[in-house]
C-alpha cells in the first residue's frame, strides 16, 4: 500500500567538467517516489539513467538541486554520513553482481548486517540464501557460482539489511532470458514480502512493465513520467 514519499528529487542537475568543457548529464530533474512502490527508469544509453540512480542512492552529489531520501537531505551530508544512510536504508543490485570475490556467498550476504554491528546474523543470512535457493552453496566463492547464482546472492545481500529502498541497476543485463526471468520473479517476490520501494534502471522494457511507474529519460531530461497502465 503506497504511503508518503520515500524519495524526493527536486531540480536536480549534474554537470561534469572535462577538458575545460561542461557536460550536462542531468538537467533539472524532478520527481518523487512513494514508499513501497516500484519504479522503472528507462532510456537510451548515455541518457543519464545511471547518473540519476547514483544521485538517488547517495553515491554522488548533484551539482544543483536536492535529493531527499527517507526525509534526509543527502546533499547536506558528508560521504561517510551518506555511507551510513546507504547502510541503513538502501539496498543495491548491480548489473555485474559486484560480489566480493574473496568472500563466500554467505559472507557476502552478511556484510551489510555486519557493517551495522548486528549480532547473530548468520541465521538470517542463511534464511535469505535459502529464499533465493542457494543455501547449499553458502560456502562457495563467487567464482564458483554461475551468473544467475551470483545475482541471486546479490539479491539476498540487497535484502539483508531490510532496506527501505532498493536500487537495481540493469539487474538482468548480464543474464540470459531464462535466468533473467527467474531473477526478476525473485526480486519482485522479495520486494513484495519486505515492503521495500524498488527503483530499477533498465533498458529492458519488459522488466520496466512489471513496475507501477515508468520514468523515461533522454538527454538528461525526463521526457515522460507515467503510471504503468498495465499494472
Amino acid at each position: 500500500m503506497p504511503s508518503e514519499n520515500i524519495l524526493h528529487i527536486e531540480n536536480v542537475s549534474k554537470i561534469y567538467k572535462s577538458a575545460g568543457k561542461e557536460l550536462t548529464v542531468l538537467n533539472n530533474v524532478n520527481f518523487s517516489v512513494e514508499g513501497g512502490s516500484t519504479l522503472a527508469i528507462t532510456g537510451p544509453s548515455g541518457s543519464g539513467k545511471t547518473t540519476l540512480l547514483g544521485l538517488c542512492a547517495g553515491l554522488d552529489r548533484s551539482t544543483t538541486g536536492s535529493v531527499k531520501l527517507n526525509g534526509i537531505k543527502l546533499d547536506e551530508l558528508t560521504e561517510d554520513q551518506r555511507a551510513a544512510v546507504r547502510n541503513r536504508y538502501i539496498g543495491f543490485i548491480f548489473q555485474n553482481f559486484q560480489l566480493m570475490p574473496t568472500l563466500t556467498a554467505l559472507e557476502n550476504v552478511m556484510v551489510p548486517m555486519e557493517l551495522r554491528g548486528e549480532k547473530d546474523i548468520r541465521t538470517h543470512a542463511m534464511d535469505l540464501l535459502d529464499k533465493v535457493g542457494l543455501a547449499e552453496r553458502s560456502h562457495h566463492y563467487p567464482v564458483q557460482l554461475s551468473g544467475g547464482e551470483q545475482q541471486r546472492v546479490s539479491l539476498a545481500r540487497a535484502f539483508s539489511n531490510k532496506p527501505a529502498i532498493l536500487f537495481a541497476d540493469e539487474p538482468t543485463g548480464n543474464l540470459d532470458a531464462e535466468t533473467s526471468e527467474k531473477i526478476e520473479k525473485l526480486m519482485f517476490e522479495l520486494n513484495r514480502d519486505a515492503g521495500t520501494t524498488l527503483i530499477i534502471v533498465t533498458h529492458d522494457l519488459e522488466l520496466a512493465m512489471r513496475t507501477n511507474r515508468i520514468i523515461k529519460i533522454k538527454g538528461g531530461v525526463i521526457i515522460s513520467d507515467n503510471p504503468n497502465a498495465t499494472r
Binding site: I72, A83, A84, M100, T102, L103, G117
Partner: peptide, 28 residues
C-alpha cells in the same frame, strides 16, 4: 536537526575490520 539523526551515525567496528581484512586476504 538532520545532523543529529541516528541514521547518520555508525561506530567503527574494529573487530569486523580485522575480520574483513582476513577474509579479503585469505584468497590472496
Amino acid at each position: 536537526m538532520q545532523q543529529d539523526n541516528p541514521a547518520l551515525k555508525r561506530s567503527v567496528n574494529i573487530s569486523w575490520l580485522f575480520k574483513m581484512a582476513w577474509r579479503d586476504a585469505r584468497r590472496n
